[in-house]
Amino acid sequence: MGGDGLAITVTLVDDHPVALAGAEAWFAAASPPIDVVAAGACAQVAWTPPGDSATVVVLDLQLSGPQPAYADLRRLVDDGRQVIVYTMREDENTALTCLDIGAFTFLTKAEGKEHLVAATVAAAHGRPYTPPALAGAFGVNTRPDRPQLSQREQEVLIEWFQCESKELVAERLGITPRTVSSYLDRVRIKYASVGREARTKATLVARALQDGLIGIDDL
């Protein structure tokens, strides 16, 4: 079940038919089954009904063309989507870049069914999930106890510290309250992923101060 009590739904974005078929079979065999509502070779499927309504987007980072699909990932994140990057790439810099942009988590295709299904369930419930590839990336990070927040996540965080409501943050930044909540959820997930949970606003303020993301003057 999803975080809102509804069945978990997924949109798959991958330009390899075998990979799409395999992921669909894994989700169908999950208990309870996870419904793949749309699948395709380009990210546009995630904005085309019914793909635009999916709880989670599973995105292959290497679509058509030589460059990683960072732009597609950023657009999905900015739209407030929960995105699992699922890719053949295994280097730590790519993993950390995806996390910095705002991906929910980063999986290599070698990690297979167990981690893809578990990560999808975690994403639907808003629970942190750190598979081996991402744990390894954290391990080589020069600041392993400090989550890598994207610039937009930091902007939302600071505005939220300064505002009385998410609605006011949304008005200031020109986004929706739902998107504000999504950004804040991702920040909390990132802190939890490095063992520093921040369930309350007060704790999140303390974490941000500790990490130099904000100063007293920002408050």
Rank of each mutant, 00 (worst) to 15 (best):
G80H: 03
D218R: 08
Q162T: 14
E92K: 10
V121I: 14
S165F: 07
V57R: 00
L213C: 04
A28I: 08
W26K: 05
V169P: 03
R75P: 00
A198R: 08
P66Q: 12
C42R: 09
A95C: 15
T9W: 03
V205E: 15
G5T: 07
L204D: 02
T179E: 04
V85L: 10
I175W: 01
C163N: 10
S181H: 01
D52W: 05
T203H: 14
L61S: 08
I175M: 08
A38F: 06
V156R: 02
I34L: 10
T120H: 00
T105A: 06
E171P: 06
E171T: 14
I175C: 03
I34S: 05
I189N: 05
L76R: 02
P66E: 11
Y191F: 15
P131G: 03
T120W: 04
A71C: 08
V187C: 09
A192W: 02
A123G: 03
A110G: 02
N93Q: 12
A122Q: 02
R186M: 13
A69W: 12
V57A: 06
G112D: 03
P32C: 12
Q210W: 10
Q44F: 06
E92V: 09
E159K: 15
K166H: 14
T94D: 13
P132R: 04
C163P: 00
R207A: 14
Q154W: 06
T120Y: 02
A202P: 03
R186D: 05
H125V: 00
Q67D: 13
G112L: 06
C98Y: 06
K190L: 15
H115N: 06
T108I: 09
G102T: 02
E159C: 15
E92C: 11
R172I: 12
I214R: 14
P66T: 12
A110N: 03
A95T: 07
V140W: 10
K201S: 10
Y70T: 06
T142G: 06
A38D: 07
E153F: 04
W160I: 04
G40P: 10
R75T: 09
V169F: 05
A30Y: 04
L204V: 02
T142M: 11
Y86R: 06
A122C: 13
T11S: 07
I214C: 14
A133L: 04
V56Y: 00
P128K: 01
L219W: 09
L149G: 08
D79F: 01
A39L: 01
D211H: 15
D78K: 04
V58S: 05
E90H: 07
P33G: 11
K190E: 11
A30I: 06
S193P: 03
P128M: 02
D72P: 10
Q67C: 07
T105K: 08
F104D: 01
T108V: 13
T9P: 04
V85K: 05
A208C: 14
D145K: 12
L76H: 00
D218F: 13
D217Y: 03
S53I: 05
D211L: 11
D4A: 12
S31L: 13
V156L: 09
W160P: 01
T48F: 07
Y183M: 08
G80D: 01
L59D: 08
V169T: 05
T130L: 14
R81K: 13
V77N: 05
T176R: 02
P128T: 10
C163Q: 13
L20N: 04
G102E: 00
Q148A: 11
G126I: 02
G126H: 00
Y183L: 02
L63K: 11
Q67H: 12
